[in-house]
């Protein structure tokens, strides 16, 4: 995971220079833009914001799942969860690396996250209360992430697209291990199945919010589409996700916490109820159940790692002096 349209306003200056025209023509011709190429400032800003938010989401996303590593029910599950969380850390690093090609430093990006100025996906501000949450996250959160990320593999900015290809290759294991956990619980004791149902009840709506605000409210969707950073609208991706996920939930024998959910025979799409966008905005503004915990955990990890970074730099400097 986890890129999310966060609806932060950006004045996408309608650049009207010959450079801007040439740039748009390259995009229209499906050419990739590489870091040293000329690009409109707004394109650069939009990408730095989107890629770094995506990177922060991967990194913060390690926290809710990391919470269960030591309590995984078997060695097999523990090894899988550890590998998944490690992957998410890796995704964060691929993405920071892509963002840095646009001229922003890692220190700056880290600082934006730790100071609370940067946003990350709202989904990680919900708690993981039971082992079933780990299954649900893999199945739904990573599932939603895959929906979001597959079109990003064709994003107009080369380094972002290449990072996404690596990420997508790894996500499929995440989703399958999550679904396998759910399947095991749903075929287990009534208590285990109830646990799975409870997790689905809590995660379903926040997962639908992962795709960002509805198209009618999405501030910079148009510009992002024109620049081919985004290929599908928030609502289109959300619908794809619902259509793919509902049959998987039915296979598990679970019910979705939405009385309005029904298959529209004519279109073949699953129609769903109204999303509580107030909740989304509340969580995004920093008032979700775990926002403060997540930020504190990141700040603590960064502060407690400072001596390691300092020591490594001091050692490198000493080696260099010796060699000189």
């Amino acid at each position: 995971m986890y890129s999310q349209a966060l609806n932060t306003k950006d004045t996408a200056a309608a650049d009207a220079s010959p450079d801007a025209d040439r740039f748009q023509a390259r995009i229209d011709a499906e050419e990739r833009i590489e870091p040293n190429d000329w690009m409109p400032e707004a394109y650069r800003r939009t990408l730095i914001r989107q890629i770094s938010q995506h990177a922060h989401s991967e990194v913060v996303g390690m926290l809710p799942e990391g919470n269960w590593i030591t309590r995984a029910p078997s060695l097999r599950r523990k090894a899988a969860l550890l590998a998944k969380v490690q992957d998410e850390g890796g995704h964060g690093l691929y993405l920071y690396s892509a963002a840095e090609t646009l001229g922003v430093s890692r220190e700056e990006l880290t600082d934006q996250l730790l100071s609370g100025r940067a946003k990350y996906s709202s989904i990680f501000n919900y708690p993981t209360l039971s082992w079933a949450d780990i299954g649900t996250i893999g199945w739904l959160v990573d599932g939603a992430a895959i929906m979001n990320q597959i079109p990003l593999c064709r994003c107009s900015f080369g380094p972002y697209a290449r990072a996404m290809i690596r990420v997508c290759r790894e996500e499929s294991f995440h989703q399958r291990q999550g679904y396998e956990i759910m399947l095991t619980l749903c075929r287990g004791t009534p208590e285990q199945k109830a646990m799975a149902q409870d997790a689905l009840n809590r995660w379903w709506w926040p997962c639908l919010m992962m795709f960002g605000p509805p198209d009618t409210e999405s501030a910079h969707s148009d510009t992002s589409m024109r620049w081919k950073i985004k290929r599908f609208t928030n609502d289109a991706l959300r619908q794809k996700f619902v259509d793919a996920t509902v049959p998987q939930g039915q296979f598990l024998g679970l019910t979705f916490p939405d009385p309005e959910l029904r298959l529209d025979e004519a279109s073949g799409h699953w129609q769903f109820g109204t999303i509580d966008w107030d909740e989304f905005r509340r969580v995004l503004a920093g008032n979700g159940p775990c926002n403060r915990d997540r930020l504190t955990a990141r700040q603590k990890a960064h502060a407690e790692g400072a001596w390691v970074r300092d020591a490594a730099l001091a050692h490198a400097a000493k080696q260099q002096r010796k060699a000189a």
Binding site: G90, L93, Y94, S97, A98, E100, R106, R162, A163, R309, A312, L313, H315, A316, Q319
Partner: peptide
């Protein structure tokens, strides 16, 4: 891609992990 590291040995280690 890229990694941050204080020296070459740590860069190799980080590259391997990432």
């Amino acid at each position: 891609g890229s990694v941050h590291a204080a020296d070459a040995a740590m860069a190799l280690q980080a590259a391997r992990d990432v």
